[in-house]
Design a protein around this nucleic acid. Structure first.
Lengths: 252, 252
DNA sequence: CGAATAGTGTCTCTCAGACAATATTGC
DNA sequence: GCAATATTGTCTGAGAGACACTATTCG
């Protein structure tokens, strides 16, 4: 009791338990219809040679999100203005880093498809990996749990917010957006209902007034859209089957 | 492995910027139909004499949630098993604490109405304060932002999850649950539609088989329920007006 | 022309919101 | 009985999902 009191009244930083703080970047994109995450191969201990999320220590006067954005721009070349960035939470299990007590604050980033970036400091290799192909046991630290939380957050967020547009470029077609939803949710969507839904939700899409050029398969050119100014989708996009109890389909 | 040993030996913790880590507890309850938060008055610097969320430093070998639960049980007397606890995120602005760099990981807790607890260490006063009566400018640190995030999270969470039951006791009536929704959302709800909705959503409520005793105003006794085993509500409870663009009502 | 993709219209079913009507208590 | 609360039923309109149909491109 009194020791804790003395503890709390101490102003000397060295009297507080020392923590190191890192930020990690869970950079997601959709490439060729597949939800992919940027992973690096660590070339230093701990977990040397294993795959990990890009990240690093926060500087003592640096804001958490600024640290994440610095890593994002430096190690992946993604400009902050072209992406969606949000904090995922704090991961602080006492033994998640073998070196010392490290708390990590991962940031979730959605960006349009990009060329594979060049390795940064502390990494020898960097690449887009399809999320479904990631082997959780081979990720460093607790990054498997971080990635799982990120993907679940992304799936939920696409339902009620317009962030899916962050996976597209400035201008995109409804089909582009649909492929984002299909990749993140992992389910096929009816193009006709999807079109009616997205164009009918106020503030979601703003028509540019021009058409896209048809793809190699031919087909009618699609109208181009920009993201609107809505921050919340109403009515929300509904993820098929996400809310059914397991076994419901088998019983039907 | 020998290289890793060498690395660990040459590794110097002071080479990394030192952070202090705190947890804060945003303990919400519904008392007499009003959403209230537990606040303490600080009796030590910084912000001595101001209101704050209960919280404190994380020990070096302590899990973040364990630290929050320790504060919860120690400073408020709420047992973890009787409440809902979830992490709210990390708040880490470089100057949020005048002493040094402190990152806080607040935890959001929902608990049934309880007697006002006794002050803990570092606090001279502790009380339930209606959330609407909290003056943001008078809260210590960035706790106004933390509280705002907590309330918004609570409002959103009631829509798609059954956590509202955490504000009730073991057994409760549909009207008890409705008063929780009305207090958190700040809107009146139709008792008849609310009843049909909650009892009709699979896994939300399980009938106990007994009735409550009528209140002082008389009235028909209500059936008692327990929370069901659903983790997600489908269909979701809808918060009236939450998704309308501002000014919609004025224009109508 | 046919294949492929874009976009509209229509039907049905679920469900939210409004509210009438009935049930059960205390006084 | 009357007031108060609980619970059920009924109607209407919004909207999701299924899918027929039309439009526009390439080859």
């Amino acid at each position: 009791m009194s020791s804790e009191e003395a503890f709390l009244q101490q102003y000397d930083p060295t009297a507080f338990p020392p923590f190191a703080l890192t930020v990690d970047v869970v950079l997601l994109t959709v490439r060729e219809g597949v939800l992919s995450v940027l992973l690096v191969e660590r070339d230093t201990h701990p977990y040397r040679g294993q795959l990990a999320l890009p990240g690093g220590f926060v500087q003592v006067d640096e804001d958490l999100e600024a640290a994440a954005v610095r890593r994002l721009e430096h190690e992946t070349g993604v400009r902050r203005s072209a992406a969606h960035v949000e904090q995922l939470g704090a991961f602080g299990h006492p033994r998640r880093d073998p070196r010392m007590r490290v708390v990590s604050v991962p940031y979730l980033v959605f960006a349009p498809d990009l060329p594979a970036p060049t390795p940064g400091v502390g990494t020898s290799w960097v690449a887009w990996v399809p999320v479904r192909a990631v082997e959780p046991d081979r990720l460093a630290f607790d990054h498997a749990a971080v990635l799982a939380a990120a993907v679940e957050r992304a799936r939920a967020k696409l339902e009620y917010s317009p962030v899916a547009t962050a996976f597209c470029g400035e201008e995109f077609t409804v089909a582009d957006l649909r492929r984002v939803y299909e990749a993140v949710w992992g389910v096929p969507l009816d193009p006709r209902n999807f079109h009616r839904k997205t164009t009918g939700t106020p503030g979601f899409l703003v028509p540019v007034g021009r058409d896209s050029v048809p793809g190699p398969e031919g087909g009618r050119p699609a109208a181009l859209y920009r993201r609107g100014d809505a921050t919340l989708l109403h009515p929300a996009m509904l993820r098929p089957g996400a809310h059914e109890p397991a076994g419901q389909v088998a019983r039907a």
